[in-house]
């Protein structure tokens, strides 16, 4: 799974800490998601979608290995 959360976050001028606070997770979790080390649950993905104002599949994409 690949994502463009870092880009979406930059568009909204949010730090990892700001985004983490908005969706109720730790900053390290956001860091791990951005680095593709952790695939979030549907609930978290939908929370991110609500923050970014975009559908989930616009910032999460399946990679070749998936």
């Amino acid at each position: 799974m690949e994502n463009t959360i870092k880009v979406e976050r930059a568009i909204l001028s949010l730090t990892q800490g700001d985004l983490a606070e908005k969706i109720g997770v730790s900053r390290q979790t956001i860091n791990s998601i951005e680095a593709n080390r952790y695939v979030p649950s549907t609930v978290l993905a939908l929370k991110l979608s609500a923050i970014f104002g975009k559908p989930v599949n616009q910032f999460f994409k399946l990679s070749d290995s998936d």
Binding site: G24, V25, S26, Q28, T29, S32, Y38, P40, S41, V43, L44
Partner: peptide, 9 residues
């Protein structure tokens, strides 16, 4: 629990 308990922890 952790101080910030989320799905990753």
């Amino acid at each position: 629990k952790d101080k910030i308990e989320d799905e990753m922890t």
